[in-house]
Amino acid sequence: MSQIIGNINILIEAPVFNLSLLLDGLMIGAVFALSAYGLALVWGVMNVKNLAQGDFVIMGGYTAWVLAQNGIHPLFGVPVAFVLLWGIGWVIYVTVIRRVIDQDLFTSLLATFGLAIMFQQILNLFFGSDTQTADAGFPSIFLFDGQVSVPQVKLIAFVLAALLATAVILFMKRSRMGQAIRATAQDPRAARVLGINTDKVYAFTFSLNAAICGAAGALVAMIWVIQPFYGITYSIRAFVVVTAAGFGNLPGVIAAGLGMGVIEQFGGFILGATFQQALVVGLLLLVLIIRQIQQARVRQVVQ
């Protein structure tokens, strides 16, 4: 308890430190926003709640890490992870997701939970349970006479995440496939009647989601740490963000993702690293309770 008060005092006495945490939070939040956007996509289009979301992120992270281990700059991990996870996402769609898509929601949740367990154990067998970082070797930028240090790699990651998000949004707005995806999201039957191959749309959407997560994961490996069992935390983060924002609300998802990053940075600093996971889960419960109160006001429930 005294430690917590001490930490809060640090924040009050050294205001620039807040800035440092804020920047950190925003840059990490960009990654959360990416994976949450992917979740919102599959949720909205296919009505699949993917609990393996975080494991896609971690797999992308290990892609970058493996490249770095072999002397290739981890930045290349971003496109490589994108392509690799696209393939993995497609395989998972064909073998599992296609068969649970029209069943009740718990089925998809449980099936993807099974997948999540599988992935984290496979990663554990291959890479061990140590935390890893893919060192990109960029220096840090110092602001305010060195009081605030911003690692260049985080800035780069932030810019890349923003670019990727913009590309995906443009793709959804402009391209033929993007239109087909949006049409399917609104009414799959009508889309089918109009000649859209919804199976193909679903496969594409799920693969795209995996690929976005993979790219985000490669960024995570550079700016933070990865570990085989961290996946579930990312899944929960994605759920928190999507539940808070609503899956049809893209700017909301991005804002909530960034906000999540900031809250976690401040919370982690004040409470200490042991409470990192508990903090994420606590946020989940908080968001769920707030949503319930909102819904109760209109005599409804969260469903």
């Binding site: 949740l109 929960i236 889960v281 769920l288 949503r291 969260v302």
Partner: peptide, 18 residues
């Protein structure tokens, strides 16, 4: 119990993890 379906599942999972 104000949560339905997947929200209930995730919420309870959250309680156990927390």
């Amino acid at each position: 119990f104000g949560l339905r379906g997947p929200y209930f599942a995730i919420g309870t999972l959250g309680v156990a993890i927390a």
